[in-house]
């Protein structure tokens, strides 16, 4: 005769096992969906809602090796951090266009922009951005300065910028431009002026 307590115990264990199995299966499905979305390297579409605002993009021109400001009107969300990300994505859309003056590699994307007080902005690029970027001191500097200047010209209060790739530190963008350190925005002013031909 099997004790009643043992039967109840085994039944509880079986129920727990079944419950855990269902839970693990659901977790795995969720992870799979996340991985699939991570592999999607298409540029993120601009926001469809929000007021249209005038912002200044600092666009790189490879032929002359210069940076030129260009006012554009884009729809921007309300949040400061979201606005920062959308402004950089608007810049990226120009660079990914076929007629780009400073072409970036296929699949380049701004994953996110984080604004951390006081005055720190973190730009997180995807792997395709760095891996497919052309290599050279000037061509890499144009990209980095274009991103930082566009960000700081439109989002006040940023004094330092850090660039990550897939959330991680990386030594250089494509063998030259240093990404291991923080960029000092005031110190970058002279570099921007030089790249604008001043």
């Amino acid at each position: 005769m099997i004790p009643r307590s043992l039967i109840i115990g085994v039944a509880i264990l079986l129920a727990a096992t079944l419950g855990m199995s269902v839970y693990v299966w659901r977790i795995r499905s969720r992870v799979h969906r996340t991985e699939v979305s991570a592999l999607n390297t298409q540029p993120v579409a601009p926001p469809v809602s929000g007021a249209t605002e005038r912002v200044t993009l600092y666009i790189a021109y490879d032929d002359a090796g210069v940076l030129r400001p260009q006012p554009v009107h884009i729809q921007l969300p309300a949040g400061r951090q979201e606005r920062a990300a959308e402004i950089l994505r608007a810049l990226l859309t120009l660079y990914l266009d076929k007629s780009s003056t400073h072409p970036l590699g296929t699949g380049s994307e701004i994953r996110d922009v984080y604004l951390v007080d006081p005055g720190l902005a973190v730009i997180d690029l995807n792997a395709a951005f760095a891996d497919n970027h052309r290599s050279g001191v000037l061509v890499e500097e144009l990209t980095v300065v274009s991103l930082i200047q566009t960000l700081t010209a439109n989002i006040p209060g940023i004094t330092r910028v850090k660039i990550l790739v897939e959330g991680n530190e990386r030594d250089t963008l494509a063998g030259h431009a240093d990404l291991s350190n923080f960029y000092d925005v005031p110190a970058l002013t002279q570099a921007v002026a030089q790249l604008q031909g001043q």
Partner: peptide, 9 residues
């Protein structure tokens, strides 16, 4: 020739 400033280690 051009003179520039760059974050170049």
């Amino acid at each position: 020739a051009r003179s520039l400033i760059a974050a170049l280690r």
